[in-house]
């Protein structure tokens, strides 16, 4: 068995609408090792959720369509599987946690039944046994098992997210995709849920793709980091590599947008401008109109992929001729 749990190669996903074609994901490459956590970081609209839904094969079609590329999960070619095979994989091999716990649970079904459903589908057990397992799952995520007969509206936002996590982990998946699992929660609850996920990751020994726009969360949980911009990975490396040797100007911009607790007088340097119109991406580097280092070549040519180590690469023209180029903004 390969040590790669998930391997996405040159994935292209588009949304074809009346107003034109949205190039949501354009040639994306990521890999996740078994038991490791990859942080997928980027701002809203970068294509993070589309990537996640592609792995689940749940891109709404129409208007969405996987145009080309490959997704390999645990040795299986996901794009070649039919719907029935996919149904067996979803919830069993790969699970997903959605962004908004307020809307992610079915309001007319008890939380216990919602957890038990996945167990009954994948583990071929009866109602009673599945319900018992569902109560155990609730206990694992820190909710008393006797609340399994309650409905989602009887739980708070943080509790709901715990239920969603319980559903996702109920069949002990090899890969968990968590799409901004804490964004919709209060700050104090965020920390609790994050802590829970961290411990469960170890307990269940699963690989994880953690989608977020929060580098703080990444530092807390992830082993590897991939920075996503306009449907592509612009920089990827281990947590340490990306956090200590920032290479891409966009990554630098993301770090500069975080307030520095040690130096409160320091001014924030937000990234100027907005993300390019996804209906009409630039010919060259997608980031060039917001980039402080932009050169003429950036507007006309797609940047090459440049490796600094086996694990750390960047897609940027700056390093094409001089590998040791240094970005000017100091690291914190």
């Amino acid at each position: 068995m390969s040590d790669k749990l998930l391997k996405i190669e040159d994935l292209v996903v588009q949304y074809i609408t009346d107003d034109g074609i949205v190039e949501a994901v354009n040639g994306l490459n990521i890999t996740v090792d078994r038991g490791k956590t990859l942080g997928l970081v980027g701002e809203t609209g970068a294509g993070k959720t589309t990537t996640a839904l592609s792995i689940m094969r749940l891109i709404p079609h129409p208007p969405g369509k996987i145009i080309s590329g490959g997704i390999e999960l645990d040795g299986m070619d996901l794009l070649a599987l039919n719907e029935q095979r996919l149904e067996k994989i979803r919830g069993d091999v790969v699970s997903m946690i959605f962004q908004d716990p307020m809307t992610a649970l079915n309001p007319v079904i008890t939380v216990g039944d919602q957890i038990a459903e996945a167990i009954m589908i994948h583990q071929k057990v009866g109602q009673a046994q599945a319900s018992q397992k569902a109560r155990e799952m609730l206990e694992i995520v820190g909710i008393p098992g006797n609340r399994s007969n309650e409905y989602p509206h009887q739980f708070s936002g943080g509790m709901k997210q715990r239920v969603v996590i319980a559903i996702a982990l109920s069949c002990n998946p090899k890969l968990l995709i968590a799409d901004e699992p804490t964004t919709a929660l209060d700050v104090t609850i965020q920390a609790q849920v994050l802590e829970l996920m961290k411990s469960l990751k170890v307990k269940f020994q699963m690989g994880m793709v953690l989608i977020t726009h929060d580098l703080g969360v990444v530092a807390e949980v992830c082993d590897d980091v991939a920075i996503m911009y306009a449907g592509r990975i612009v920089e990827q490396g281990t947590l340490e590599e990306v956090f200590t040797e920032v290479k891409h100007p966009y990554t630098e911009g993301l770090f500069n947008s975080i307030p520095n607790i040690d130096d409160r007088k320091e001014k924030l340097k937000p990234i100027r401008g907005l993300m390019s119109d996804p209906y009409n991406l630039p010919k060259g580097c997608s980031f060039c109109d917001r980039c402080d280092y932009a050169m003429p070549v950036c507007e006309t040519e797609k940047p090459p992929k440049i490796y600094f180590s086996d694990t750390h690469f960047v897609e940027c023209h700056l390093y094409r001729d001089q590998q040791d180029f240094k970005l000017k903004g100091g690291m914190k």
Binding site: F98, L105, E117
Partner: peptide
């Protein structure tokens, strides 16, 4: 179009 339908699909529930 609701999220909980996606949650259900993500569990492997058939169409």
């Amino acid at each position: 179009r609701q999220d909980y339908i996606n949650t259900a699909k993500a569990k492997g529930v058939t169409r």
